Structures are given as C-alpha cells and as structure tokens.
Amino acid sequence: MILYTTMPLDIVFENMDQVEKQVIREVTFGSVTMLVEPVNQYEAKIVRLISPDPQDYLNPRFAPGQKIAFRPDFS
C-alpha cells in the first residue's frame, strides 16, 4: 500500500497497534446467510449480508447495523 500524504507518518499510523480484532461469525437466519458480530449471548449485529436473492438486500430487517436475536446452538 502506498500513501501519498503531507501528514507526518507518526500521525497517520498513530493507532495502528490498537486495532481490535472483531469476532465475526457466519449464521443463517431463516433462508438468509449473513456475517454477524456478537453483541451479547443472544444478540448480534449484522455486518454483511450474503444472499443470491436481491429482495433480501432490500429488506430493512437485514440491513447492516441491524441487530438480530438468536439462540445459540450448542450441538
């Protein structure tokens, strides 16, 4: 990666070592597969939708940032 900037590099890379790793899981909710980030034990935030059906992307329930409730599968 090449950065063309007039800013000093110590400002550009100031917080690079403090990046948090996200825990993202792939889940199927009904017939829709999505990537979610767990918020707590029974709730997750949608990060990305994975579906071949264009109507799923138009559904506001599946918009990125929305929260879904689920029950973990312990099997």
Rank of each mutant, 00 (worst) to 15 (best):
I2Q: 08
L3W: 06
L3M: 07
L3F: 13
Y4D: 12
Y4L: 09
Y4S: 09
T5D: 11
T6A: 13
M7G: 00
P8D: 15
L9V: 13
L9K: 12
D10C: 06
I11T: 06
V12N: 06
V12C: 11
V12R: 03
F13P: 00
F13Y: 09
F13T: 10
F13G: 08
E14Y: 10
N15K: 14
N15M: 04
D17I: 01
D17R: 12
D17E: 11
Q18L: 11
Q18M: 11
Q18N: 15
Q18K: 15
V19Q: 12
V19F: 09
E20R: 06
E20M: 10
K21V: 10
K21T: 13
Q22S: 12
V23E: 11
I24Y: 07
I24P: 04
R25S: 08
R25Y: 11
R25G: 00
E26Y: 04
E26N: 05
E26D: 02
V27R: 05
V27K: 06
V27I: 14
T28L: 09
T28C: 10
T28H: 04
F29K: 05
F29T: 05
G30I: 04
S31L: 05
S31Q: 13
V32H: 01
V32M: 02
T33E: 03
M34A: 15
L35G: 00
L35P: 00
L35C: 04
V36W: 02
V36D: 01
E37P: 00
E37I: 02
V39G: 02
N40V: 05
Y42Q: 08
E43I: 00
E43L: 05
E43W: 02
A44Q: 01
A44I: 02
A44H: 03
A44G: 00
A44L: 01
K45A: 14
K45I: 08
I46P: 03
I46L: 08
V47N: 05
V47E: 11
V47I: 15
R48E: 15
R48I: 03
R48P: 00
L49I: 15
I50L: 14
I50F: 07
I50T: 01
I50Q: 13
I50E: 09
I50W: 01
S51H: 05
S51W: 02
S51Y: 01
P52R: 04
P52E: 09
P52Y: 03
D53Y: 08
D53N: 14
P54N: 03
P54D: 10
P54T: 07
P54I: 09
Q55T: 13
D56L: 07
D56E: 04
D56H: 14
Y57W: 12
Y57Q: 02
L58S: 10
L58T: 03
L58W: 06
N59M: 08
N59P: 03
P60L: 05
R61T: 09
F62Q: 01
F62Y: 15
F62P: 04
F62V: 03
F62A: 04
A63M: 08
A63T: 14
P64C: 09
G65M: 05
Q66M: 13
K67R: 12
K67A: 04
K67T: 15
K67N: 13
K67G: 00
K67V: 11
I68A: 02
I68P: 01
I68N: 06
I68G: 05
A69C: 08
R71S: 12
R71D: 05
R71T: 15
R71V: 10
P72N: 02
P72R: 07
P72W: 00
D73V: 12
D73N: 15
D73F: 14
D73H: 12
D73L: 12
F74Q: 11
S75P: 03
